[in-house]
Computed example of a mutant assay.
Amino acid sequence: MNQIRNIYCVGRNYRLHAEELGNAVPTSPFLFSKPTHALVEANGQTIVLPGNQGEVHYETELVLHIFRPYEPGMSVEDIVDKMALGIDFTLRDVQSELKKKSHPWLRAKGFPNSAVLTKFHAFPGEAACAETDFSLFKNGERVQRGNVSDMLFNMQTIIEFAAEHFGLGQGDIIYTGTPAGVGPVADGDKLELLWGDDVWGTCVIHLRL
Rank of each mutant, 00 (worst) to 15 (best):
I7F: 04
Y8E: 02
C9W: 05
G11N: 10
G11E: 08
R12N: 06
R15Q: 14
H17E: 11
H17L: 10
H17C: 14
A18E: 08
E19K: 15
E20D: 12
L21C: 06
A24Q: 14
V25F: 14
S28R: 12
P29S: 01
F30V: 06
K34N: 06
P35S: 02
T36E: 00
L39A: 05
A42G: 07
G44F: 03
G44S: 06
T46A: 10
T46N: 04
T46Y: 03
Q53V: 12
G54Y: 02
G54C: 11
E55R: 14
H57F: 12
Y58K: 11
Y58T: 11
Y58L: 08
E59P: 13
L62F: 08
V63A: 09
H65V: 03
H65L: 10
I66D: 00
F67H: 15
P72F: 07
M74Y: 15
M74P: 00
M74S: 05
V80C: 08
V80M: 10
K82I: 01
I87D: 06
I87V: 15
L91V: 11
V94C: 11
V94S: 08
L98I: 09
L98Q: 12
K99D: 07
K99L: 13
H103G: 03
H103I: 05
W105S: 11
W105F: 12
L106M: 12
G110L: 01
N113R: 02
S114R: 13
A115L: 09
T118D: 00
T118G: 00
F120I: 03
F120Q: 09
P124C: 07
G125R: 01
G125K: 02
A127I: 05
K138A: 11
K138D: 02
G140V: 08
E141W: 00
E141Q: 11
R145H: 12
N147D: 03
N147L: 11
V148H: 02
V148L: 09
S149Q: 10
S149R: 11
D150F: 08
D150N: 05
Q156E: 14
I159Q: 01
I159W: 08
F161Y: 15
F161W: 13
A162Y: 00
A162C: 13
A163T: 07
F166Q: 07
G167N: 03
L168C: 04
G169Y: 10
Q170W: 06
D172T: 11
T176A: 01
T176C: 13
T176Q: 02
G177E: 04
A180S: 15
G181V: 10
G183C: 04
D187W: 01
G188I: 10
D189K: 08
L191F: 06
L191A: 03
L191D: 02
L194C: 11
W195Y: 07
D197R: 08
D198E: 15
D198W: 00
G201Q: 03
V204C: 10
